[in-house]
Nucleic acid binder design. Structure first.
Length: 225
DNA sequence: ACATTAAATTCGA
DNA sequence: TCGAATTTAATGT
């Protein structure tokens, strides 16, 4: 159970819900903390919850057969994920790992499905979110082919501040250059150079253990045209 | 890969 | 409980 005020803070989508739907969400939702490095859910396991990051930062990662680790995507405060797995009722395809101490809200599958089928507001939210993700994945393909390392880092940062996927996120992100490199698919030194270059162009500010976004649109369109 | 710097932790008062 | 010393983590080249 999560009270109304808390839910309002951590789940922007809940603000549009009908009263009955909102009440179900409040009753069903639970919040849990994870320490840095914790494995929130593991590939191949069944984990029947839709999850939102109340606070902190997670990453999705896959591990190849040879044991090589690939970071696929980062999720930070305000982001909700896992709907794909729930809708298809399948096993998790990726690990979810806490990059730093995080607090997660969870909604069980039954409640999720009820919302999907009975709340117009919720269904609309899902369509918008999934469409946003689709655009983001298409952008990633473009990324690999057309952007240099700096462009990839810029894109990785911009994705983390997508206002649809991460509403109410501030301008600041606690993320080391090493993690950013993993996220962007470049080495740590390359990420470092990219960050300095982006900083020199006034798009963001580098800090110890984090970055602050100064020009989101500039990051999003970096390297385009 | 190495040097530098920031932060976190330990330890002694 | 404070601050200096040490260790660890992140950054810069």
């Amino acid at each position: 159970m999560i009270d109304a005020a808390r839910l309002h803070d951590i789940a922007a989508w809940s603000r549009a819900l009908e009263p009955e739907a909102l009440e179900r969400v409040q009753t069903a939702a639970v919040e849990r903390r994870y320490p840095a490095g914790a494995l929130v859910c593991e590939t191949g396991h069944k984990f029947d919850h839709w999850m939102g990051v109340a606070d902190g930062l997670l990453k999705m990662r896959a591990i190849s057969r040879e044991g090589k680790e690939v970071t696929l995507s980062g999720v930070h405060s305000g982001g909700w994920f896992g709907e794909g797995t729930i809708l298809k009722n399948e096993l998790r395809r990726y690990d979810i790992v806490a990059i730093r101490p995080s607090s997660l809200a969870m909604i069980d599958r039954t409640t999720f499905m009820w919302l999907f089928e009975n709340s117009g507001a919720f269904a609309r939210f899902l369509v918008v979110q999934m469409n946003e993700r689709l655009g983001h994945f298409i952008g990633l393909l473009e990324n690999d082919r057309m952007l240099d390392a700096t462009g990839r880092v810029a894109r990785a940062v911009a994705i983390m501040f997508n206002p649809v996927l991460y509403p109410d996120s501030g301008r600041h992100l606690d993320l080391t250059q090493e993690e950013l490199g993993l996220l962007a698919g470049v080495s740590r030194p390359t990420a470092n150079q990219a960050i300095r270059q982006l900083q020199a162009q006034g798009l963001l500010r580098a800090e110890y253990g984090g970055i602050t976004i100064l020009d989101l649109n500039g990051l999003k369109t970096y390297g385009a045209e």
